[in-house]
Design a protein around this nucleic acid. Structure first.
Lengths: 165, 165
DNA sequence: TCCATGAATTGGACATTGTCCAATTCATGA
DNA sequence: TCATGAATTGGACAATGTCCAATTCATGGA
C-alpha cells in the first residue's frame, strides 16, 4: 500500500509541513523544475512561501532521496521526483529542454570507467546533448556559447515525460 | 610537423596575441583550471591581463575547439587542452578533484540513448562521481550537499594527469 | 613602413542563483 | 499542552560570468 506524501516525509524523519508538501507537488507537476518555479507554483497553491523555505525544503528532500537534483551545464539546478532508477537526461543545446531517458542498467553506477584512478565510484552521470525535435524542426542552430542562447537555454520549455508507474 | 601555438591560433582565424598565448599556456599547465586561476597564472607570465580579456580569450578558444570547457555540478567552469578525444572525467564528491579518464570509444557520441526522443544527439557527456583516493585515505565522507564542502569542492586540488602524446 | 581593424584595457555595474543572517513566530507531533 | 523543528522576513552576501563603452593597443596584411 502506498504511503501518502505526508507519511513518506515522516518515514524519512521530516515533519510534514504544508510548505514541504507544496514543494513536493510542484516538483511532481513539472519534471526538471527550477527552484524559482517551485517557489512560484507553491506560492499559488498555499498562498505564501518564503524563498528560504523553498530552498530549505528542496535541500531536505534531496538529502533524503525523495527528489533528485540535477544541473546540466548552463542551467540552474533542476529538481525531479523520479528517483532511484538512475535515469539519464537528454538536453537540448539550443533551447535547454531536458527530458528523461531510461538507464539501460537501472542502477548506479551503470558504466565502468576504463581506469578508475583509485576512485571509489558511486555514479556515472550521463547527459546526452543535442538538438530537440522542436529546435530541429525550426531549423535553430544557435550555439550553447551564445550568451543569449545560454540564458534562454537555462529556462527550457516544459516537456512532458511519461509518469513513472 | 606540429604547429606552434601562434600558428594554431592563426589557422583558426584568431590573431596570435600575447594574452591568448598566455591563456593557452595557463590551460596547458593545469588541467581543469578555472577562469580565475587562468587569470592569475597568465598575469604572472605576461604582467597584466584584464579579466574581460581572459574571458574573451577563453571563449574564443573554446568556440574554435582549441580548448574544452567542462563544468561538473557545483564547480565553476574549468578548461582543459585535451580536445577531440571525447575523454570523460572522474569527480570527487568530497574535495572536488577532477581527473581525466579515457573514453572507451574515443569519439562522440560514445553511448546510445535507450530512446532518443527525437533528439539529434551529438554528445554523451559522462562524469564518474565518487571519492578520490586521497579523501578515501583520509576517511572523508562529507556530502556534496554540505555547503562548506560544496564551496571547497569548487576549488579542487591540482591533480596530475598523463600528458597526451 | 603604414594603417585597418580586431583585440585589449579599465574597473565598475549588472545578472543570476543560491546561501546566510537572526530574532521572532508558527505549527507539527509527542 | 508544549518542546522544538520549521518557517518567516527581506535584505545582505558570495561566487561566477557578462556587459559597458570610450579609448588605446598591437597584429598582420598591403
Amino acid at each position: 500500500m502506498t504511503l501518502t506524501p505526508a507519511e513518506t516525509l515522516r518515514r524519512h524523519g521530516l515533519q510534514a509541513t504544508a510548505q514541504r508538501l507544496a514543494v513536493l507537488r510542484a516538483v511532481a507537476s513539472q519534471p526538471h523544475i527550477t527552484a524559482d518555479d517551485v517557489a512560484a507554483v507553491a506560492a499559488v497553491e498555499i498562498g505564501t512561501i518564503s524563498r528560504q523555505g523553498v530552498y530549505d525544503a528542496l535541500n531536505a528532500l534531496v538529502q533524503r532521496g525523495l527528489i533528485r537534483r540535477i544541473q546540466p551545464v548552463g542551467s540552474p539546478a533542476r529538481y525531479e521526483d523520479r528517483v532511484n532508477d538512475n535515469h539519464h537526461h537528454l538536453v537540448c543545446r539550443i533551447c535547454g529542454a531536458v527530458v528523461d531517458v531510461d538507464c539501460a542498467v537501472g542502477s548506479a553506477p551503470c558504466l565502468t570507467a576504463k581506469d578508475d584512478r583509485g576512485y571509489e565510484i558511486d555514479e556515472a552521470e550521463v547527459a546526452y546533448w543535442g538538438r530537440c525535435p522542436e529546435c530541429a524542426a525550426q531549423g535553430r542552430t544557435s550555439s550553447r556559447l551564445d550568451p543569449a542562447a545560454r540564458r534562454r537555454r537555462g529556462a527550457p520549455r516544459v516537456v512532458a515525460t511519461p509518469t513513472p508507474s
